[in-house]
Amino acid sequence: MEIDPFIFRLSIFILSIFIGYYVVWSVTPSLHTPLMSVTNAISSVIIVGAIIAGLAGDSDDIFNTSSIFGFLAISLAAINIFGGFLVTQRMLAMYKKKKKDK
């Protein structure tokens, strides 16, 4: 009997939850705000689905109902990707150690 590929995806999912659990507990509390903005940015990898939907239109009719939703989702996800990573970068650049000149 063959194993349904769904089971493999489920395994990846469950194991990733555990990885997430341990990795996030090791995040220092002072970086919890950047953590939220960066998780925001990476969850926008959902853009992958939006791109598939957007490219599914026929070549003579690229704007069918399905692909329009795809295009809109691309823009939304792109706001998040650029906004999320850049604002995280901006925040992280501000975290500085004490100057050692004393």
Binding site: L72, A78, G84, L86, V87
Partner: peptide, 14 residues
């Protein structure tokens, strides 16, 4: 569409 979203996002972030 990617560019539109990206520009909006970058603008907000800055």
């Amino acid at each position: 569409f990617l560019l539109i979203g990206g520009l909006i996002g970058a603008y907000i972030a800055y």
